[in-house]
Amino acid sequence: MRADRIWEIARKDMASVQRYRYVRLGLILMPLIFAVFIPLVLIYPVVAGEEAPKDNELPPFARPGMPSKEAMVAGLIDMATLMFMVIPAAIPSTIASYTLVGEKVNRQLEPLLATPTTDLELLMGKCMGAFIPTMLTTVASFVVFILVVDFLTLPLFGHMILPNLLSAVVLLVYAPLISLLSISWCVFISSKVTDIRAAVQLGALGVLPLMAFYVLFVGGILSLESLTLVAFALVLISASAGLFALGKVTFQREKILTRWT
């Protein structure tokens, strides 16, 4: 595998997609929503509220072992932190849809396939072209999120509550795996559809497993213990590996030229 070829494909894809309005919009709006809007709407009202919720009124996701208001706010921060998994799941569905389905529709894949690159180099380049902007956006928004949350909650806790273990796990383990999962899913979808919008919509289905995890946490069925975090990481690793393998089988020259409808 030749890194320079992979990087060149990724670089070209990154340069190409940033010219699409919907991709740019996604790269700007998502961080704004998750890093600024959610803390302001979800966390700030509780921090600023005069009354603390009663212990028996606390929702299942509230952090145990804390006074009720702090427990409620810490639980909400955990919720907002988990919501960050949506960014690495959603952005690739836009980028990969443009770089795969868009190139298929515009018949840009054939000259690319005629180059002396291997199928795996092409696939890796395409994946990296979606992975890098996704992770840059996720990390940048997370930094803003941490600053906003710490700024809002410093008077309540008296110390910076973020970064913590959960945020580190989400950013360093879950986000890359979810991004890879989403990209692999998009590669698979690209072989089935000929419309970019359909690809984006189907790609968004990649968010569903995360929503399931999220609902289980909010509903109190799952707690954010180390075991749960490790188990979810293992699920993500298996799913990413499985889908990447499927993407690899799907992304073969002959299939792209003759089977991708």
């Binding site: 070209k12 340069a15 190409s16 010219r19 515009n106 018949r107 840009q108 894949l109 054939e110 000259p111 690319l112 005629a114 180059t115 002396p116």
Partner: peptide, 18 residues
């Protein structure tokens, strides 16, 4: 073989934004 060959397919397939 791909290294020594050039291909012009039916559709130009250029990257219009580049």
């Amino acid at each position: 073989i791909r290294e020594m060959c050039g291909l012009l397919p039916e559709a130009p397939g250029l990257y219009g934004e580049l």
